[in-house]
Design a protein around this nucleic acid. Structure first.
Lengths: 93, 93
DNA sequence: TTATTTGGTTTATAAAATAAACTTGTTTAC
DNA sequence: GTAAACAAGTTTATTTTATAAACCAAATAA
């Protein structure tokens, strides 16, 4: 039987964001936007959802005078990501 | 950069169906329904989409007097599935 | 014969993804 | 110094999807 896929992670953009954050200590909004090729609006919405789920943590600050939103994955996020990868394997093999 | 994920395959139920059909010669509606645990309505809709995309072929016949819808993957479907798996790996590693 | 079950399809609703428009503040050009 | 352009996002609106609920036709069981 196929395991249920976490709908929060089974989304192209959110998965890309999580994939990046799983690899780096932290990444800011602009970097995520460039790496994923997404629009600001879409990225903003998806970051919110990941934050509400507790999968990532967001810190708002400034780089000089310019606002800067920094994201990092949480332990819960790491665990969810790993579970998702395991679940997905059942579909791909 | 993250490759685009085929939206037709990036769907839990459609992916499960394709995953099954990639493994067997053919499978009928009832079998797919049992294996995926989906509702008839949802399965019917998703089979239609995969058919329209040319990823699977559907044959409608009878098993005795009872109608029986048989599905099998097409070469285009196999290729799309393989590409999807490759693309997804970029997100999971 | 009238329920009930099988094997679905169609239609309606809920949820998601995405795009477009807007905001706040900053830098640049005149 | 002020108007225009830009950066970094957010909010709102629209489109697309997924899913569920309702329905239907034929077969079997009571």
């Amino acid at each position: 039987m196929f395991p249920k896929l976490d709908p929060l992670l089974h989304s192209e953009l959110r998965l890309a964001v999580m994939s990046i954050l799983a690899d780096v200590e932290s990444a800011d909004f602009t970097y995520l936007k460039k790496q994923t090729g997404s629009t600001s609006g879409n990225l903003s919405v998806q970051i919110d959802k990941l934050t509400s789920a507790g999968y990532i943590a967001v810190e708002k600050g400034f780089k000089g005078k310019i606002p800067c939103t920094t994201c990092r994955i949480t332990p819960a996020g790491t665990e969810a990501f790993n579970s998702y990868v395991e679940a997905l394997k059942e579909y791909l093999k």
